[in-house]
């Protein structure tokens, strides 16, 4: 495979106004002991692009995100975020959101959202104000002073998303953020995700096992093969984001690309 580093990517990465940093994975393989999780993953994500990764459970999607996030180094291959290759720099550049909300039960929703800000050394008052504003924006402003156990799954996920966005990092890594929610809440949060990502223009990698969600939220959808995972199929999303969700997911083009993806998924399994 030929590596393509566009001049635009370089320029964007250096600019302080950059909406997002480019992600480049070259020949990334990762094993846990004898277990081969990933084999030869090639992936380029442009600054500001939203990419979804779909695949069967256990194909190494979560591992891939953790590697990009700088939480571990791949066994072989290289990962660069904004041109930086070492794990510490990737940790600095990426906001990672795991599937479980991991809210701290003893902290108020607003203080959970503000966790990253506080850890970045921002004072309590300012962190709370900014977190309160973000919760407002994500539709849970009135629950800022609630404890996590008083919130529903969807609200908790919104708080966790606020915590992720508030880090202000140029790359968002979302690991099945909506997997545990009921269908209605899920559709609601997919719309919120689309809206927010469009406004933020940050480079985003969304991991999901829901093909429809992938095409609805992302600009481009990649398919990861079963273990050991590697990218076996990809397609651009035909979704017109100015349309409401209901009409977007029922358009013929959407149905066609969804069909193709499901077929590719089935093939990979067989």
């Amino acid at each position: 495979m030929i590596e393509t580093t566009t001049p635009k990517t370089q320029a964007e990465a250096q600019s302080p106004e950059s909406p997002g940093a480019a992600i480049e994975l070259t020949g990334v393989a990762h094993s846990f002991g004898d277990l081969e999780a990933l084999a030869g993953v090639e992936l380029n994500v442009a600054p500001g692009e939203v990419v979804a990764i779909v695949g069967a459970s256990g194909c190494g999607k979560s591992t891939l995100l953790e590697l990009i996030a700088g939480l571990a180094e791949p066994s072989t291959g290289s990962i660069a975020v904004g041109g930086e290759r070492d794990a510490a720099a990737r940790l600095d550049a990426c906001a990672w959101m795991p599937q479980r909300d991991l809210l701290l039960p003893w902290r108020l929703a607003v203080d959970n959202a503000a966790l990253g800000l506080r850890l970045a050394g921002i004072g309590r008052a300012e962190a709370r104000e900014r977190a309160g504003g973000m919760l407002e924006r994500l539709g849970v402003g009135e629950f800022a002073r609630s404890h996590p156990r008083q919130l529903s799954g969807g609200m908790r996920q919104r708080v966790a998303f606020a915590r992720t966005l508030l880090t202000g990092k140029p790359v968002l890594l979302l690991d099945e953020p909506l997997a545990a929610l009921d269908a209605i809440t899920r559709a609601e949060l997919q719309e919120l995700l689309v809206e927010t990502l469009a406004a933020e223009r940050r480079t985003t990698v969304l991991v999901t096992h829901d093909v429809e969600e992938a095409f609805f939220v992302a600009d481009r959808v990649l398919l990861l093969s079963p273990r050991p995972g590697r990218v076996v199929w990809s397609a651009a999303s035909p979704v017109d984001r100015s349309e409401p969700r209901a009409s977007a997911v029922t358009a013929p083009a959407f149905a066609a690309v969804r069909e193709a993806a499901l077929e590719a998924l089935a093939e990979g399994r067989g």
Binding site: L71, L91, W96, R100, L119
Partner: peptide, 12 residues
């Protein structure tokens, strides 16, 4: 482990 990873990712 995941909780610790989150803290690390948030810069703790």
């Amino acid at each position: 482990e995941e909780q610790r990873k989150l803290m690390r990712s948030l810069g703790a």
